[in-house]
């Protein structure tokens, strides 16, 4: 087996393992984190610190009765939960998690799919997520589900614009759609002599737009309108139970991880952290790169949890107003300014 093939399998295996582990770990973080914020204890019975709670939950999900409403549109009803997971698993292929390394005389890039239009692929896959919500709500044949999916469709489309524009602005100074080049651009040099050359410093506005849009894209509070448990019971997944419900649950956490990783890559230097030496044995380098990216993603995930348990929820019209009247103009302005600065040679 060639080095390239082995490396490829290793990279794919790594991502799949990490992503599948995200849900149980995040479920624990979310529950313990919310408990900490809310002055409670949270699950602390299963295993040390309740760490095995997620395992118990998984077993519970598997053994719950799997109900299908008799009036549901069955093919779509079964397809929707699968769609929730697949795009979230796939988007990671374009994310670099380390510099190029030399293994057995061959150069290996630490990303799965080294495609020219990396970011575009990412966005295309990520926006498949909306089909999950729409199909789930539509096929359940439940009014609350339908309302949830109508909300989801409008919300995702509205915020995808701002999200994409802020991503584009981050790419302008780099001049490439390849995410590894975006990281390399941020590795070299500094801002003002002491700040790392990360995009977040010149493009702080763009980062904020990205962050808000990411919350909306992942349907997390304060943008969890498609679920809105107090209004729509459970929104688009009202009728789902057992493992199908668990797949939505996994999809949500994977989408969070995906967008966190994109934010880290676009605005926070991806696998790079100032002061870390990325030379030496390839395994060490890969480990360092991966750990740094992982830490950044984890920080974003904690932010997601923190925000969720702090803010109330928007109303639907307010959410759309924010998307179209505030974020979109700001994102365009941001793009224009960044483009001008780039042409002017400042960036």
């Amino acid at each position: 087996m060639s080095v390239a093939l082995a490396a490829m399998l290793a990279k794919i295996g790594l991502w799949v393992a990490v992503l599948l582990a995200v849900t149980p770990v995040m479920a624990w973080v979310e529950r313990r984190g919310s408990a900490m914020i809310q002055d409670r204890l949270g699950p602390n019975r299963v295993g040390p610190l309740g760490l095995l709670q997620a395992l118990a939950d998984a077993v519970k999900f598997l053994f719950k009765e799997d109900l299908t409403p008799s009036a549901a549109d069955k093919p779509l009803y079964y397809l929707a939960p699968a769609l929730a997971v697949v795009p979230a698993l796939t988007t990671f292929v374009v994310l670099p998690f380390g510099p190029e390394i030399e293994v057995g005389g061959e150069t290996v890039k630490l990303l799965v799919a080294d495609v020219e239009s990396g970011v575009l692929l990412f966005l295309a896959l990520a926006s498949l997520g909306v089909y999950t919500l729409v199909l789930a709500g539509y096929s359940s044949n439940n009014k609350y589900s339908l309302l949830g999916s109508v909300r989801a469709a409008a919300q995702m489309i509205s915020y995808e614009l701002a999200l994409t524009l802020s991503v584009v602005a981050a790419l302008v100074p780099v001049g490439s759609f390849r995410l590894d080049e975006v990281v390399l651009y941020q590795v070299e040099g500094t801002w003002l002599g002491f700040l790392p050359h990360w995009n977040v410093f010149p493009q702080f506005l763009g980062f904020l737009i990205f962050l808000v849009a990411a919350f909306a894209e992942t349907n997390r509070l304060p943008f969890d309108l498609p679920e809105a448990e107090s209004e729509l019971v459970a929104g688009y997944h009202t009728e789902y139970s057992s493992m199908k419900f668990a797949l939505f649950f996994m999809g949500e956490y994977m989408a969070m991880a995906t967008l966190s990783a994109l934010a880290a890559t676009l605005f926070f230097g991806g696998w790079h952290f100032p002061g870390i030496d990325y030379t030496g044995h390839w395994a060490i380098v890969a480990l360092k790169g991966f750990s740094v990216l992982f830490a950044k993603v984890a920080a974003f995930m904690l932010l997601f949890v923190w925000v969720r348990w702090t803010f109330p929820r928007f109303r639907f019209d307010q959410l759309l107003r924010l998307g179209w009247k505030v974020l979109l103009p700001l994102a365009i302005l941001n793009l224009v300014v960044i483009a001008a600065l780039t042409i002017g040679g400042v960036l």
Partner: peptide, 16 residues
């Protein structure tokens, strides 16, 4: 009221 608008944390603060 707050939990109905999604602010669950306040619900626990109020229940303490």
């Amino acid at each position: 009221t707050l939990v109905d608008t999604g602010a669950l944390t306040n619900f626990w603060y109020m229940f303490q």
